[in-house]
Amino acid sequence: MAGGATSGGSAVTDTYKEARNWLLLPAWITLGFLVLAPVLLMLVYSFLTKEFRGGVIWEFSLAAYDQFFFDRGLFGDDPAQIEWTYIAIFWRSIWQAGVATLLSLAIGFPTAYFIATRPEKQRVIWVFLITIPYWVNLLIRTVSMRFLLRDEGPLNSFFMATGLVDGPIHMINTNFAVQVGLFYSYLPFMVLPIYAAVERYNFTLSEAAADLYANKWITLRHIVLPAVKPGVVAGCILVFVPSLGSFLAPDLLGGAKNFMIGSLIEEQFKGNAGNWPFGAAASMILLTMVLIILVIYARAQARSDKEAG
């Protein structure tokens, strides 16, 4: 009976076999009721009629999606034209998240590579230093960034003291501030997966390249980069996806002119102009975009796993 192996059919596995549904039940109930059901309900809400001052009337309507994509004039009886306002907000969000992702990659890749090539004992400390800021309240980090970037903030004082510029550089409430804020918020997410990939990379490949007279940068581009690509892609997704739906950075650093999806959604549930079905529809469109990215990623991942055997 004893059998030493930890394989699937051992005695202990049998112990939990009968109990496993009971063990999972609390998680199913909690997440089913508080996450899955609400998301499905949100889908339903996006097809309902809005009630003024928040809430919905239980009547089927495509008005929310119609409002998102089409402009039918003030009284709603003009011929439908494409409504660019909300598409532009989504496009700006994609752009801002994309710039933040590229910035994070530019800084995150060399950092991850550098850490992964340290002696093993040092690596832990470097990784820990990169992780700490992630656990610090995102709100506080964004507020810190706002404080730093103000016209009369420490960064401008520093620039003026060094004589680099005469007057303050206006940074707060610009697209640039939002990009910096997003970059700063999610930078650790870029470093960690790339670090994990480089750590697994077999450096004898680099040696082989060097023996064949490849210079270091060619080796990096053609040998290292393809080998660690899964880590790079994972890092980009982990920065891009939360940036896309972020609320704090555009709200605290971007001001009213630099609206992103998150602010558009929030406004539908907080402001006086609240339109719940429209907010639900915008959330559904955001969720769909994110799920498409994740599905493409999962498929590519499965394919490369298959190729790797």
Binding site: L24, A27, L31, P38, M42, I265, A280, S283, V290
Partner: peptide, 27 residues
């Protein structure tokens, strides 16, 4: 399926979870 359900809050953007939860409690 269970693993998918457990990791759902990590995949759904936070603002979407927020909207969905608000709608749920309200309804």
């Amino acid at each position: 399926w269970s693993f998918g359900l457990i990791s759902l809050p990590l995949m759904v953007p936070e603002i979407v979870t927020a909207v969905a939860t608000l709608i749920f409690f309200n309804s």
